[in-house]
Nucleic acid binder design. Structure first.
Ligand code: FES
Ligand code: FES
Lengths: 154, 154
DNA sequence: TAAACTGATACTATATTAGTATCAATTAAA
DNA sequence: TTTAATTGATACTAATATAGTATCAGTTTA
């Protein structure tokens, strides 16, 4: 059971790159090359994120994508909803025509409770938090692969 | 994002039926009919559950499937693992050749922590618990659709 | 011996995920 | 002012996962 699909995964990486260079434009091409993300695939993801106001873009030479928002205001929950649809454990455990007391159904409550737990966990994980984590990982072992440099500013 | 797929969903329903009639054999046909589960699909699921020692079977006339185990010892986590593979948030956020300090990577720890939260939540939900929930729902509003009767003993 | 069953397995259909290609419009710079 | 680097929009293909169907052999009870 894969919780994050490629598009969410790629979107997170791209957002991390943009967050690390917040305020300046990065082209889809440069992000794709640096992070081994298929170029056209990435462009679609970036456009989708523009539609959801997570990033902005500038056309033409020297154009690209930029993060304006606070990276801490972008959670993995949001990205999952955009790219994989809202988290839902099961449409309904039993077909409606039989279980017609949905409002009181304990089973259904159970399911909704878990949905919320999962969502809340992913809400805690923001792009800002991930970026700080990366920077910490980078400081701990500076002589090894310099993640922030290698991944975000190569 | 669908957390439970059809096979897990169907498997849970079938196990609930078997748990409600613990000790006696139910045929795949009767379970399929009563719960609107595609017959051949269900049979595959039942066979898979036999292989994982969740249920037992008896061949021939008057044969079928039976639950021997304690229903509280069967969790949704187990079923997800059987039918959807182990819960994994993301193989790894960055490709190995760059992030080569896996052991210390904070990001990776974050991911593994969420994996465990999700798994633990589903571990709390056992077939035994679900069955009791159903029975409670049934008692609360006995004049409305009698779930336990309708779904499990029609 | 016939009918009601499971065991095993192969097959098809549908949906989702992943990835590619193309062309028009925009913009900075040569 | 032309050219190259870029995004916008959208259509397409490929690969994989999910869902569902079909078939035949073997077992058991009546
Ligand atoms: S299981 Fe869906 S309403 Fe009860
Ligand atoms: S993100 Fe995978 S080891 Fe760091």
């Amino acid at each position: 059971m894969k919780v994050l699909t490629k598009n969410t995964d790629y979107a997170i990486r791209a957002l991390l790159a943009l967050a690390a260079k917040k305020g300046s434009y990065l082209s889809a091409k440069s992000i794709a090359t640096e992070h081994d993300i298929p170029y056209q695939f990435l462009r679609r993801l970036l456009q989708e994120m523009i539609r959801h106001n997570l990033i902005v873009s500038k056309e033409g030479v020297q154009g690209g994508f930029m993060m304006e928002k606070d990276p801490d205001a972008i959670s993995v929950t949001q990205l999952i909803e955009i790219f994989q649809g809202k988290v839902q454990v099961s449409e309904c455990m039993f077909r409606k025509q039989i279980c017609n007391n949905r409002a009181r159904c304990v089973l259904r409550h159970e399911i909704m409770r878990i949905e919320q737990v999962v969502q809340r966990e992913f809400e805690k994980v923001t792009i800002g938090k991930l970026l700080r984590d990366l920077q910490v990982a980078n400081k701990v072992e500076p002589q090894s692969a310099n993640i922030e440099q290698a991944v975000l500013n190569p």
